[in-house]
Design a protein around this nucleic acid. Sequence first.
DNA 1: ATTTTTTTTTAGATTTGTCTAAATATAATT
DNA 2: AATTATATTTAGACAAATCTAAAAAAAAAT
Lengths: 224, 224
Amino acid sequence: MKYSPSKENYLKAIFHLQQDDSVVSTNALARQLNTSAASVTDMLKKLKTQKLLQYQPYRGVRLTAEGKKVALQIIRKHRLWEYFLVEKLAFGWEEVHEIAEELEHISSTKLIDRLDHFLGNPRTDPHGDPIPDAQGSMPLVQQTSLIDLPVRKQAAVISVSNQSTAMLDLLKHHHIGIGTKLAVNRRFEFDQTLEISIPNRPVFTISELLAANLFVAYDTTTTA
Amino acid sequence: MKYSPSKENYLKAIFHLQQDDSVVSTNALARQLNTSAASVTDMLKKLKTQKLLQYQPYRGVRLTAEGKKVALQIIRKHRLWEYFLVEKLAFGWEEVHEIAEELEHISSTKLIDRLDHFLGNPRTDPHGDPIPDAQGSMPLVQQTSLIDLPVRKQAAVISVSNQSTAMLDLLKHHHIGIGTKLAVNRRFEFDQTLEISIPNRPVFTISELLAANLFVAYDTTTTA
DNA sequence: ATTTTTTTTTAGATTTGTCTAAATATAATT
DNA sequence: AATTATATTTAGACAAATCTAAAAAAAAAT
C-alpha cells in the first residue's frame, strides 16, 4: 500500500493525461514526466505487476480502480499542501506547485486528514482545482464561463468549448492555455469586452465571444 | 548544496552522536541508523569526498564545519515541523517524530523560514529541544536538573552528570537514556523521591540522588 | 502493398544506497 | 608478546530508477 515517489508521480501523470477513459501513450507520459520513453516502459511493467494499471505492449496504458485511488490520494495531498502554502504561509499562487510536488509524497494519511481539518476542509485549491476527499471522491469543479467569473477572482482555465484553429490561434496569441491562471480586472459595458490579467504578463482585453468560450475553475470556499 | 535524504540522515546522526567534539565510530552510527557497518563505511567515503566530514579508515568520523551546518538545518526543519504538528495539528508528543523524519527532507528553505514565522519563531520544539535559527546557530538549552523540573512539565533527558557504571546501570534499568522524554508526576516530601512517567511505560519512582544527576531540557516558550 | 516514419520496446550500462560474507585492522586478554 | 575478540573495511551482489543505442512493431505516406 506504499509506493515510491517515482511510482506516485507516474500514477498521477497517467491520471491527468487519461482525460475520459482513453489510453495514455508511452511518449505522452515521457513528455509529461520529462524522461525517456524507455524509462516509461520499464516503469509501466513494474506498475502492472502491482495491478495499478492495465498495460499491453504498444497498446498504451490505463489506470485500474486501485491505480486511480492512489492517484487521487496524491492529488489530494498536493492540493491541500498548496492550499496551506498560500493561505497559511502567504506564498504566491505560482510558487507553490514545486514545493507541493515534494510534500505530496509524505506518507502519513493521519497527517493529511489533520491538515485538511486544520484548513477547514477546503474544496478547491488556490488554482480552483477541486480537492478529493479522504475517500478519494473528487467534487465536480465549479466550472463557469469566463463571462460569469466575478471581477478580481483568480481562476484557472480548465477547458475551451470551441476547438477551432481560429480560436486556438487567438488563445495562443494571448498566451492562454489549459491551466493558465487569470483574473478579470473589469468589464466594459459599452462592448462587453473584458480586461484580463495573467500573473507576470501585461494586462489585455478580450472579446465577449472569446470569454463565452473559455471555461474556468475558481475557489468558492467561503472564508470566515 | 543539496543532499539526498539518506545523506542528510547520516549527517544528522553523526551530529547527535558527536557530543563534544569526539569522533563517532562506525558501529555507533550503524546502530543509530539501523543499518550495517559496511553500509556506513560506504557512505562515509562518499560524504568525505563532499567535504562534509573528516574520516580516516578505522579512526572514526567527525563533521566538518560545512557538515555541521547541513546537519543543523535538518535539525531545524525537523523541530519546526514537530512544533507545527503538535501546536497546529494537535498531534501527540510521541507520534510526531516519525512524520517529522519525512518532512525534514523537504528542500525549500523559503518554506521553512515561512513556517518558522507562521509558528511565531518558537525556540524549542515540543520535547524541549532547541530549534536552530536560519543561520544554524542553536540557542543554549534551558537545562535543568530533574530536581528543578516543574511537575507535569514534559522534558527530554539531555545529559547525565555522573557517568559511573552504577548510575548507567540504574538508568538502563529504568529505561532512561539521552533523549528519553519524561515528566515528573509528583514529589514525595517524606524522602524527596519523585514519581516519573515515560510515555507508553508504567510510572515509577526514583531517588533524589538520581534526579540530581539527570539533566533535562523543556519548552519555556511563553504561549500567548 | 510497399516503403518510410514514428512509436515503443529491448538490451546493456550506470548511479545510489543497500546487503552478506570474507578479510583485515585494532583492542582486549591472558 | 601472543592470542583472542571486536570493530571496521573490502569484495561482490542486488534492487530501484534511470540512461543511450539498437531492434521491433505500428502507423502514415506514397
